[in-house]
Amino acid sequence: MSLFALLVAFVFAIVGREGERKRTLYALRVFLEFVGVGFALAWLLYWIPW
């Protein structure tokens, strides 16, 4: 999941922002959001019994 998030974040940053600094920050944000949402959904689904 982390590898997937990292690779997708690279591409999103390339096409989504202009400027190296903005791209780097956007890639970091997208990566953290992917991982964070992944963990949040995993815990949410863990407590739902069906």
């Binding site: 590898l3 997937f4 690779l7 997708v8 690279f10 591409v11 390339i14 096409v15």
Partner: peptide, 24 residues
């Protein structure tokens, strides 16, 4: 496409990402 227009780093990073996701 990026590399061919002089955006070597962007092309390499984007291409490598796609080329890595596919075999995974």
């Amino acid at each position: 496409g990026h590399a061919g227009q002089g955006r070597i780093l962007r092309g390499a990073l984007g291409g490598a990402s796609v080329l890595a996701i596919f075999p995974c």
